[in-house]
Nucleic acid binder design. Sequence first.
DNA 1: ATGCAAATGAGAATGATTATCGTTCGTGTC
DNA 2: GACACGAACGATAATCATTCTCATTTGCAT
Lengths: 143, 143
Amino acid sequence: MNELEPEHLKSAGLKSTLPRLKVLDLFKNGQERHMSAENVYQLLRDSGDNVGLATVYRVLTQFEQAGLLVRHNFEGGKSVFELNEGTHHDHIVCMQCGHVEEFYDSAIESRQKKIAADRGFTIHDHSLHIYGDCTKTKCPHRR
Amino acid sequence: MNELEPEHLKSAGLKSTLPRLKVLDLFKNGQERHMSAENVYQLLRDSGDNVGLATVYRVLTQFEQAGLLVRHNFEGGKSVFELNEGTHHDHIVCMQCGHVEEFYDSAIESRQKKIAADRGFTIHDHSLHIYGDCTKTKCPHRR
DNA sequence: ATGCAAATGAGAATGATTATCGTTCGTGTC
DNA sequence: GACACGAACGATAATCATTCTCATTTGCAT
Ligand SMILES: [Mn+2]
Ligand SMILES: [Mn+2]
Ligand SMILES: [Zn+2]
Ligand SMILES: [Zn+2]
């Protein structure tokens, strides 16, 4: 449906296959920024592509390991992925409509570093999710 | 094995049954502060009690809803519970040995409130997990 | 065009959690 | 203390997300 970019895959050490190109394209040119495996699978389905769900899971994990995507574990049991654009950020999620907003707070980040240091921990990763309701009037996002 | 406390259950609107008393006792008098359903199940098993795994899951969820326990979703796919002692705190988890330390940082808490307010969100809940390695020398906690 | 390892897709398998359902237990009544 | 009855239990089937297996297809280098 769009131009494909085999360079990104090759440079990530991944051979350029059709399913991989389709998934990457979805994240780069699709409307949803945060998507689960099932989301990706359905969108590819809807656009007439015949990809297996197992392949979607496989590719998402590979992309994560290759640093192309970032995985998040919001509440609800399913992993959500987004394009890795290098800039770390955390998320605030609306429990009514599922809308996700991103934020970065340097004060929080530095406090985390201090907390870990004080306790003799080497930080590997961290996750901060705020759950709430976005103002009812603007809530009409999608389910 | 210890004194049982049916009051807590009754006051929580829960009928005082043997499995419930055992589970509650584990959290109040056991050695582990943070436990998964499987952890609880095994510990009860080991102490000779015949409780069903389904009952453990049921009771943990009931206790959570009754406000007796708090549920956390650390990485690893399984829910972890701890006694609800009223004071909110976040967690830093060692990815090597599984050791968990708790912390509360008012600066982080207030920044979160501000972030939500700025975006028109009413906070329902939030989760902050820091993952890392605790200093190798003190790491010999359990797997 | 050929060859072959790597990737894919269908479906089975897994691990955590929940739902079902016949049996047992807790508690209030006589 | 015996009874009654609905709540709770325990064993097991079912569900859900995700991973694994394996026969078939594909990407890519000869
Ligand atoms: Mn994001
Ligand atoms: Mn805790
Ligand atoms: Zn909303
Ligand atoms: Zn450790």
